[in-house]
């Protein structure tokens, strides 16, 4: 079983480390915080590793590198006073996570993450950061804004955060052995081929095992054979699947997405459309409200002069 006490010690150390890292006036303990944080993460990993009775091999070295990068990026993101840097650090975290995904064999998702997440969402964030940049006053534009420089109630937040972490990990590690049993080793490798007629057809055609006029009747992944029906014969003929024909990650995701969650897909689409509409309406200028004649509409009021100014 996992050595829980070390985990909790790691949590505490991590909390203290982070505490030092959080932005506050005259913060001199940053370095020590970072070291402490990293050490805590390491200790956590070590605790997991030493609990050797967990079966299976250790994740390889890339995992450790990527997770440290991710954790460090995340910490830097929340501790860096400048919003732009925070966003950039976040992009680093996303990349690290993508790496982890690749580790886990979810390549498609890794790239999707990078393209959609880092590419689109975070870029929007950067736009907004630039748009809503607030210079305290004209003389020294890069002075730190008060509300960025100091964390709000750092101690309470950290304590609660890491208590939550401790509880989370405690529950997870005590709970993981009660997870529903995994299916035995995958009974039929590449089971998705049965559904991927197109893929099989294109591979067979590339390997000249099928003529253009023929079509695939069905595929039997267990026996790794496929039935091909040609216009000339009544019953389809059997074709041996080439050995290198395997289901890629994308395929499994595609099959699972469409076979098991078709409704959710549609709903996701609707959500996206609604979000787009919402964003458009929210960001409209008052003119739009005046046009439709309702004094309140979504009109959000005149831009005020800087807070505090008369």
């Amino acid at each position: 079983m996992v050595e829980m006490s070390i985990i909790y010690a790691a949590c505490v150390a991590g909390a203290i480390g982070l505490l030092f890292l959080l932005p506050r006036r005259g913060n001199r303990w940053g370095l020590i915080g970072a070291v402490l944080g990293a050490g805590a993460l390491g200790a956590g990993m070590l605790a997991l590793a030493r609990g050797s009775n967990a079966s299976g091999d250790h994740p390889d070295v890339f995992f450790y590198v990527l997770s440290f990068v991710a954790a460090g990026g995340a910490v830097r993101m929340i501790t860096h006073p400048r919003p732009v840097y925070a966003a950039l650090y976040f992009i680093l975290v996303v990349l690290a996570t993508a790496g982890l995904f690749v580790q886990l064999g979810a390549e498609f998702m890794a790239f999707a993450l990078i393209i959609v997440y880092a590419g689109a969402i975070l870029i929007t964030y950067l736009f907004v950061i630039m748009l809503a940049q607030e210079a305290p006053d004209d003389q020294h534009p890069d002075a730190l804004l008060d509300y960025d420089a100091t964390a709000r109630e750092p101690v309470a937040a950290t304590v609660i955060g890491f208590v939550l972490l401790g509880a989370l990990l405690g529950v997870m590690y005590r709970g993981t052995n009660q997870l529903p049993a995994r299916a035995a080793h995958r009974s039929v490798p590449d089971a998705e081929l049965a559904m991927l007629a197109g893929k099989v057809e294109s591979t067979l055609r590339d390997a000249d095992l099928m003529k253009d006029s023929e079509t695939i009747a069905s595929v039997d992944p267990a026996a790794r054979i496929a039935w091909v029906r040609s216009p000339s014969m009544e019953n389809p003929r059997v074709v041996e699947l080439p050995a290198d024909l395997h289901v890629a990650n994308v395929d499994t995701v595609g099959v699972s997405l469409l076979a098991e969650f078709p409704v959710s897909l549609e709903v996701a689409g609707v959500i996206l459309m609604l979000a787009m509409l919402g964003a458009v309406v929210l960001a409209r200028k008052p003119a739009f409200a005046a046009a439709i004649g309702s004094p309140h509409g979504f009109y959000v009021g005149e831009p005020h002069r800087k807070a505090g100014a008369p």
């Binding site: 109630e153 937040a157 609660i160 939550l164 509880a167 405690g170 529950v171």
Partner: peptide, 23 residues
């Protein structure tokens, strides 16, 4: 806003501790 956030996090932590304690 953050006051409420803190409250929610605290609550979640308490729940988890209870679940942890009950396991």
């Amino acid at each position: 806003l953050q006051g409420y956030g803190l409250g929610m996090a605290g609550g979640a932590a308490m729940l988890l501790i209870i679940v942890w304690w009950m396991l």
